[in-house]
């Protein structure tokens, strides 16, 4: 983990909603499309990448999210060691995927801020700033979408019903959080 000041200082509680940053979490971006790429990933992290659009798959330690037909993001289910910026799995995948030109593995742990939202008012909040239709999404465990929230690119993952992980680029996180704080206080 890089040594930075977190832009989201504390856990916030609103009516029907709890918001907090989850940190540090390993995040890897994977790109590739051929069969060998998929099978190499599967063998090395012990889970298959989701091929169906807007879905995710999980193992004990990792969750992988579909971003595009040739792009995924893998995150660790648990927080990592704060002092350490080396992830075993990144090293492993880098040597098996990037070095062999099967695809690309990029560490985006510090690029994205992960914000955890919990409560029955999540989608009331998101709907006020998103063009995305959440009617089906909010019922589907593991659903993933990339969309705009407040004109900011975000990745939204429905971890389980009424629990969402939201990923936003670090430079936008403070601005987004101040909007969440304002909008959620009026839910």
């Amino acid at each position: 983990m890089l040594n930075y000041q977190s832009s989201i200082k504390e856990e916030k509680t609103y009516s029907g909603l709890i918001v907090k940053e989850v940190v540090p979490v390993m995040k890897l971006n994977l790109r590739g499309k051929n069969r060998e790429f998929l099978s190499t990933i599967g063998k090395n992290i012990n889970m298959t990448l989701p091929l169906e659009a807007n879905t995710s798959s999980s193992s004990d330690n990792y969750t992988s999210m579909w971003l595009s037909p040739d792009e995924w993001m893998i995150i660790s289910n648990y927080t990592a060691d704060k002092e350490n910026n080396n992830y075993q799995i990144e090293k492993l995948l880098f040597s098996k995927i990037s070095k062999t030109n099967l695809g690309a593995v990029t560490d985006v742990s510090d690029q994205f801020v992960m914000i955890n939202l919990k409560g029955e008012k999540i989608f009331d909040l998101l709907s006020t700033g998103c063009p995305f239709n959440f009617n089906e999404f909010k019922k589907k465990n593991g659903a993933v979408t990339q969309t705009l929230l407040l004109q900011i690119d975000v990745i939204i993952h429905l971890k389980e019903i009424n629990t969402v992980n939201l990923f936003v680029r670090r430079s936008f996180s403070e601005h987004l959080m101040s909007w969440i704080d304002d909008a959620a206080s009026r839910l």
Binding site: N54, P131, T147
Partner: peptide
Amino acid sequence: PFCGERDQSEF
């Protein structure tokens, strides 16, 4: 063709 129906503002 990959993600399904989305609002025009995403494009």
